[in-house]
Design a protein around this nucleic acid. Sequence first.
DNA 1: ATTAAACATGTATAAAAAATACATGTTTAA
DNA 2: TTAAACATGTATTTTTTATACATGTTTAAT
Lengths: 145, 145
Amino acid sequence: MRLKKYTDYALRVLIYAGASDHKVSIKEISDTFYISAEHIRKVVHQLSVNEYIETTRGRNGGIRLARDADTINIGAVVRLMENDFYLVECFDSEHNQCVITPVCKLRTALSEAIRAFFEVLNQYTLADLIENKDELQALMGIERE
Amino acid sequence: MRLKKYTDYALRVLIYAGASDHKVSIKEISDTFYISAEHIRKVVHQLSVNEYIETTRGRNGGIRLARDADTINIGAVVRLMENDFYLVECFDSEHNQCVITPVCKLRTALSEAIRAFFEVLNQYTLADLIENKDELQALMGIERE
DNA sequence: ATTAAACATGTATAAAAAATACATGTTTAA
DNA sequence: TTAAACATGTATTTTTTATACATGTTTAAT
């Protein structure tokens, strides 16, 4: 069980943008994390469509958070980037064929488990993740203002 | 984010075997769930190697639980069947290249989340899942003793 | 002994998902 | 006008997962 790399990348982009005091470029992020700019670009686009970040085109362009870090919920970002959370067949009611579904207690257990998973993530905002801004800036090579 | 079908199948095999009063065959299970016997066979093998079920070869052979249902922990079964739970790159220390790992609070958040996930599953045993044996037997077409 | 039912096991193929790369376009400030 | 920077659609490759095939071994019934 893994999250997609794009989910990982999206969170890194938010952390980078959030920990920076000024606008940042895709290239900067891709250089920092040794990830192709192509991938970052895609992720940035999705985050921008969903109004997590604001992009500015053209020379001196770049990206910045579109909202305050403390209003960006980490559980929500994970839900946005992943396709689904169909742990087992019966979670996908459209394709489910499992005969015991109506009385299955496994289904209940797994639902509870995934709920607990998000209950934790929902308690975090981006602000919590960049609380140690200075340390992050140092490791990401971001210049202080 | 999904579990593998084999994880799903493994749990169904345990539920089927646990809810049955006698030995059951792979064919029975595969017919009940409309899953190819090949897949069930693989899953059965893995469960048998890990001493969750006992197999008997030959005519009149079949499978049964190797232990009492209340000693089979659901979290443990899920951990057994999945390859890993590397939600993001840094969970796989061998291949991790993310520069902020040492100070990353996302890492902490995701660890907590996956821990919460298993905390729920660890509370369940197979006995809990087959508590409603009669209903299960009816839906799975298992004959009462 | 023979046979048929049942599990064992290794390998190969196919399908799906994810990751990655390519190409071209648009915007904007210098 | 140009170069930096984001936009966007498409194509390819890789990885993972799912599925299928082939053959072997065991065992009880006949």
